[in-house]
Simulated scan of single mutants.
Amino acid sequence: MKLRPLEETDLEFIHELANDYSLMSYWFEEPYNSLGKLTEHYRNNNSGESARRFVVMNEQDKVGIVDLDYIDFIHRHCEIMLIIKPEFSGNGFAKFAFKEATKYAFEVLNMHKVYLYVDVENEKAVGIYKKQGFKNEGVLREHFYAKGKYKDAAFMSILKQEWLKNE
C-alpha cells in the first residue's frame, strides 16, 4: 500500500470514480463530470496551493483517492476526503490512506486542524475516523442532498496536538 501524487495519467481512473453515483454520494457531490472537463480542471488547477490529491495504490492497482482540499495556510486547516473502490473495501486501504494523508497534512503542510463532513448514517466511515482520533464537533442538519433526500452530516476534526498524542 502506498499513496502517490495524482498524475494526469490517472484522470481516467478519477473519471470512473467521479461518475459513480454510489461513490460520489459519500462526498455529497453530483456524479457528473466529463473527462474533457476533468482534464481541463487538472491542467488549470494542478499547480494551485489549495489542494493535494493522492492516488491510493496496491502494487500496480489504483484502489482509491484521498484529497486534502480547501487548504488554508492562514488559519492552517484543510478538509480531507477519501474514496476507495468498492471491490477493495475491507482490506485496510481506507485506514491506511486516511492515516497517511492526515500525517501529510500535519507534518508536511503544517496544518493545525484537519476536518471532514460525513453522512451520520455512514457508520463504517464514522468508525474509521473515530479510530484515527477525529472528534465529532456537531451535526449539520439536512446539510447535503444525496440519494434523493437531504442528509445530516457530522462535522468531525482532529487537531495537530491530538494527532501527535496518537502517533
Rank of each mutant, 00 (worst) to 15 (best):
D69S: 14
L23W: 01
L6Q: 10
Y145H: 14
E162M: 01
H15M: 02
C78D: 05
S157I: 07
F96L: 06
H143R: 13
Q60L: 12
N136Y: 04
L23V: 04
I80A: 05
R52E: 10
K95G: 09
A94C: 02
V66G: 06
V56T: 07
W163T: 02
A101Y: 01
K151M: 14
E12N: 06
F28H: 12
G90W: 01
K103D: 12
F144C: 06
N58K: 15
V56Q: 04
H112G: 04
E49G: 03
M81W: 11
S22W: 12
G127W: 05
A146N: 05
T102F: 11
I83N: 02
L140N: 05
V126R: 13
V139Q: 06
P31K: 07
T39R: 12
A105C: 01
D61G: 02
M81F: 10
T102I: 12
F13P: 00
R4G: 04
H143N: 11
D20K: 00
N110E: 14
A51W: 13
V120Q: 08
K160F: 15
W163R: 01
E49Y: 13
E107C: 00
F155G: 04
I74G: 06
E12R: 05
H41V: 02
Y115R: 06
K95T: 14
I158H: 07
V118E: 08
D119W: 03
L164G: 00
D67R: 14
Y26E: 08
L68V: 07
I74A: 13
G133K: 06
K130P: 00
P86K: 10
I128F: 13
N33F: 14
Q60H: 13
V139H: 12
E79Y: 15
Q132H: 10
E29L: 13
E59I: 08
K124E: 11
P5T: 09
L82C: 05
M81S: 12
H77M: 11
M81L: 09
D72Q: 10
